[in-house]
Amino acid sequence: MSLMSIRKSPFGSVEGEAVEAFEIERGGCRAKIITYGAILSEFHVPDGAGGMADIVLGYDDLDSYRRYRGSTGAICGRYANRIANARFELDGAIHDLSVNEPPNHIHGGFKGFNKRVWQAKPDAANDAVRLTLRRPDGDEGYPGTMNAAVTYRLTADAALEIVMEATCDRPTVVNMVYHGYWNLAGHAHGHIKDHVLTLAADHYTPVGPGKIPTGDITAVADTAFDFRTGKRIGADIFDTAQLPEAGYDHNFCLNGSAGTLRRAVHVHDPLSGRSLAILTDQPGVQFYTGDHFAASPAIGKGGAIYGKHCGFALETQVYPNAPNTPHFPSAVLRPGETYRHVMLIPIVAP
């Protein structure tokens, strides 16, 4: 018998389409998912003293999710991250995508998965909420009708599992990501520069104009990108020779075999004592320190002010611009195949 409870409530509407919220509680943790953008809106977890905190950035109302930049807590697709010049070639055909970050394409376009209302169904048998979305052939320029799904599940041992899936009736590309921002001290704490990050990545992909990868795969040794043995996020963040924007927004090439679930990330917050790990089957992870909040601060849950470095994203993924970079891991999905992307996120209190 499941020990989980799922509660459903309204969360506004978009163009006459109702948006719902689902709250899951299990294993001492509580999550809230809304159907707009398939967003993880809240995630409450304990610290070592039993105190609870909501450790994901988010907003109290639907208008704020639509107003503020950053895809906060959303599932991005079809292709999350960037595609250079908003086009790619597949099987000899050129596909022109929407140009929503000129001259490039990012996070699926003007109205990607992160800006759509998904259909949701509680799944008590699997202690989960499953959300589905169907998008037509030509949506934002992508070929093929795509059926996408994401399942959020809380496990008995205080882990959050996120499973993203997709099928398509024509050859296409897909890279769905969970685009949440974490702050283990609590979403309203203010900054994450003292969090200690460990990344199982010996290499990363440097970027050029528009944050498009250059195509190089570069060793992290002796650079600001070396998190292999654990380092404060803020240790090198103001080294503007390596990080011109005083922040990270880079893809790291994860060690181990893509397709195999393996530990990729560990983060520890000395203030609260909380730790978070990420296991994934994807080849890369985008580490982003929320730099866009510098120019556009947001008013988050409970009136919290979200500014630069207020949270960090760790988006497990296929590499950015992989459809135009043959030596990067493939993002191609063909009819009869199922795209599947797993993130398992254990939360550890001391």
Rank of each mutant, 00 (worst) to 15 (best):
A158S: 14
F11T: 02
L154M: 06
A304V: 12
E337R: 06
G144H: 11
H341D: 08
G73W: 02
V285K: 01
H341P: 02
V45Y: 01
E337K: 09
N104M: 10
Y319R: 09
E337Q: 15
L57T: 01
G109M: 07
A166L: 08
S41I: 02
T223W: 10
F252N: 00
G112I: 10
D291P: 00
P143Q: 07
P206N: 08
D202W: 07
A156V: 08
A264D: 06
F113Y: 09
G144C: 12
E89T: 11
N251W: 04
C76T: 06
A200Q: 12
E101R: 13
C168V: 10
I33V: 15
P102F: 14
D123E: 11
H309Q: 13
D127N: 15
T151A: 00
P46I: 08
A224Y: 04
V56L: 11
A322N: 02
D91P: 05
A166H: 03
F238D: 11
A53C: 14
A200P: 01
F11G: 01
N85Q: 05
L131A: 04
A322H: 03
R7N: 14
F227K: 03
M146C: 14
I347F: 04
Y319K: 06
A31L: 11
P171H: 11
A322V: 02
Q119G: 00
